[in-house]
């Protein structure tokens, strides 16, 4: 059983990661790439390599021997860099010496880092370069895609906000109000998290039409903007202020159930709006009529009902002389 015999340099060229061991563990030959990872093999095999958990046993040579004879995969840990594991297989020659061919597996990056390997260190049949290529290419693509996703999410958020905002006053528009109101009426997801009571305020300007007719639409728009400012400054962060059309505004005041407090707040808002009345307006002054409904858990959970109630209260205010508030 004799075939062609390979010299040491041919072996090194063909298998840059080989390790050829005599029966007693003496190193007969080592591939040039493996030699970069394992310098000074003269200090002996066990000073450089140790068996992994998969191959228990204290002696590295016996672990290698048994893996070769049982034709199982061999895993060896570097003594100097214990996080680096080489894997491979081997055969036993007729004279009892062992020829191992080792590789890096997924620890390729660490090996390249610790031994400063280059393209020339890998046999052409190895997929090392392709693995590195794929790794970097994938990372680049993923980074780009996640950047793109972030941007889309941001644009979506801006678009959503715009869709719920009244461009003139910066308050919510009708759509924004509907969303806020339905959230207030719904017990939020958890069953034991009951909805909180709130006051819904419906506000309508008095004599707004005359401002538009006598002073022009620009003056009307300015007034609406100023009213928006007044409402914004009278509500808290958790509250909602919306312009739902023309000169109609709605406030959701969370947790506000006290009639005296609502009365005071309403009067302050009416006074502030009174103060906005343009002096050029002849014979009358701008004011506001308000209708308030206090909603407590157990009340109608339909937004339409609550809005209709507030609307009724508003018309009571209008009917009884304007510039006042009705609390239901």
């Amino acid at each position: 059983m004799s075939g062609p015999v390979l010299g040491a340099s041919a072996l090194a060229q063909l298998l840059p990661m080989h390790l050829w061991l005599a029966r007693d563990g003496a190193v007969l030959s080592i591939g040039p790439t493996l030699a970069k990872l394992l310098p000074d093999m003269s200090e002996g095999l066990s000073a450089r390599l140790m068996p992994t958990r998969e191959q228990p046993g204290s002696c590295v040579l016996s672990a290698i021997g048994s893996a070769v004879d049982q034709r199982t995969r061999l895993f060896l840990r570097l003594t100097d860099a214990p996080d680096l594991v080489l894997r491979g297989h081997g055969v036993r020659a007729e004279d009892g010496s062992i020829l191992l061919n080792l590789g890096f597996g997924i620890g390729l990056h660490k090996a390249i880092q610790s031994a400063g390997l280059t393209d020339d260190d890998f046999a052409p049949s190895e997929l090392a370069m392709e693995l590195l290529f794929l790794h970097e290419a994938n990372r680049g693509v993923l980074t780009e895609l996640s950047r793109f996703n972030d941007q889309l999410a941001q644009s979506r958020e801006v678009a959503l906000l715009q869709a719920q905002t009244d461009p003139l006053t910066g308050l919510h528009n009708r759509r924004g109000l509907e969303i806020a109101l339905s959230l207030s009426l719904r017990s939020v997801d958890l069953p034991d998290d009951a909805p909180q009571p709130f006051a819904l305020v419906h506000l309508d300007l008095d004599h707004f039409k005359q401002v538009n007719d006598q002073l022009g639409h620009q003056a009307g728009d300015d007034l609406l903007r100023s009213v928006g400012g007044v409402l914004r400054s009278h509500v808290r962060k958790a509250d909602t202020a919306a312009r739902i059309g023309g000169d109609e505004f709605v406030l959701i005041l969370r947790g506000m159930t006290s009639r005296p407090a609502l009365q005071t707040l309403s009067e302050r808002i009416i006074a502030a709006i009174n103060a906005l009345s343009p002096p050029e307006l002849v014979g009358l002054s701008v004011s506001a009529s308000m209708g308030v409904v206090i909603w407590t858990p157990g009340g109608s959970a339909r937004a339409d009902d609550v809005l209709a109630q507030a609307d009724r209260a508003l018309y009571m205010s209008k009917g009884s002389g304007r510039g006042r508030v009705t609390i239901l």
């Binding site: 990056h109 390249i112 880092q113 400063g116 390997l117 280059t118 393209d119 590195l132 970097e136 990372r139």
Partner: peptide
């Protein structure tokens, strides 16, 4: 050019 990417260690 070296195989080890600087970016990798940064990341």
């Amino acid at each position: 050019f070296c195989l080890q990417s600087d970016l990798l260690s940064d990341q």
